[in-house]
Amino acid sequence: MNRTAPYRLMSREERIDWWAGQWRRTLPGLITLGLVVLMTAPIFAPLPLMPQLGLLGVFIWATFQPAMMPPWLAFVIGIVSDLLFGLPLGVNATLLPLTAMFVRGFEARFGHHVYRFDWVMLAAVALVYQVLGWQAARFAGNATGFAPLLVQWLTTVAAYPAVVTLCAALQRRFIGPRS
């Protein structure tokens, strides 16, 4: 991660350490995929209470480690989500890379923010995500009402603190305290 010296200037041990640490680059993607699989838990609530954990993962890792959550990775995660949830292929595959691109551009332009601001940003992003996802699914032949998606939006916003705490702990443990 934090390469202090160019590769050619490293000692043998440093190089081994560097290579052994490379798996950590896959951590954001793997965690987000794990969150997507978690969304397929056999829990049947009368309302769609399952939060959009995949969106949360992409949003949080795009703020923590923009280089490790590039839009193409969000695209792959989106394809997997569409396949796992039985959605028309392309709904999450479009919206998750857009989210990653938006967060990356926003952070590059306006810098980092306090925690509460990120939460409000997530609420706005998730609402747009639900509206666009609703329309994309409708376009591909899965027409539904919007009220259930609003419920899911609320649970997504409510789940943000838990997921961000988990991701922050993992980031500090495996990648480093600085983002």
């Binding site: 397929t40 949830f85 709904v91 996802g133 998606l149």
Partner: peptide, 10 residues
């Protein structure tokens, strides 16, 4: 039963 999709659409 080994999984679900309990989102708003599906």
């Amino acid at each position: 039963i080994a999984g679900a999709s309990s989102g708003g659409v599906v």
